[in-house]
Amino acid sequence: MFFVRTASERDLVQVRALLAETWHATYDSFYGVDKVNELTARWHSIDALKARLQRKNAEFVVADNGREIAGMGFAAMSDRLEKTTILHQLYVLPKYQRQGIGRDLFAELETCFPDAERMRVEVEPQNLHALAFYRAHGFTDVASTASCGDEHSGIPALILEKRLV
């Protein structure tokens, strides 16, 4: 059984490995191994993950069974959108997907921001499993972007939003 808890610095090596495995399983067929390696090196380095741990108005959680971390999530209050939480990451190792771990991580993150009125997430349009997950959890499409994650990614995404109040 996995329990959701706040991440710590001692988790970052496992979280980085989880992100690399999950990203390759999900995105290699869309972008190719080289692009996934590039993005993973930039976005999922230990330094990048440490910065998330230290970020104010943010929550970084993991699903842990005492031996292994099966999933992770990171959300933060938006710097640009009033009363909006941005769900930056929600990933579960492929072998543990469809077992409720993503649901449990999301449920925790959804309650961490009492001042937020809405939550947003960016999802690759071809990632049908993720789109189905978020829509099943009350998200609706509100916009799109040509550069998910940062202005240099070149990755298109749908922007989904859920009312929290």
Rank of each mutant, 00 (worst) to 15 (best):
I46S: 02
K50Y: 02
G32Q: 07
N65I: 06
V121N: 01
V15D: 00
N65V: 11
D79Q: 14
L160N: 04
E9W: 00
R67G: 13
E124N: 15
F106S: 00
V62K: 01
L90R: 01
P156I: 06
Y31V: 13
K95Y: 09
V165D: 15
G149R: 11
A25C: 10
F30M: 13
R98F: 10
N65P: 03
D115L: 12
W43V: 12
S78C: 09
P156D: 13
R67L: 14
F3E: 15
S144A: 13
F30K: 05
N57D: 12
L160T: 04
V142F: 13
R10K: 13
Q97Y: 07
R52G: 02
T84R: 13
R103I: 12
A143E: 13
Y134S: 00
P125V: 11
V4W: 06
L105G: 02
G66F: 07
F30C: 14
A63N: 00
A146Y: 09
R98P: 03
T22W: 02
S29V: 12
I101T: 04
C112M: 11
L53E: 00
F113K: 01
A70F: 07
A63K: 00
R5E: 05
S147A: 15
C148R: 11
L158F: 08
G100M: 07
R52C: 05
L164H: 09
Q97N: 10
Y31G: 03
G102R: 08
A116G: 08
Q89G: 02
G154E: 12
Y31P: 00
E124L: 12
P94L: 13
P94R: 14
S153T: 10
C148L: 15
R118V: 10
E122M: 14
G71Y: 01
F113L: 12
A25E: 05
L81E: 11
R10S: 09
Q126D: 15
A63F: 05
E117M: 12
T40D: 06
L105H: 04
M119A: 07
D64K: 06
V165T: 14
A63T: 04
P125I: 11
F139Q: 02
S78H: 01
A20R: 13
F139D: 02
D150K: 03
S153Q: 07
A132L: 08
A132Y: 08
Q126S: 15
K83R: 15
Y27V: 03
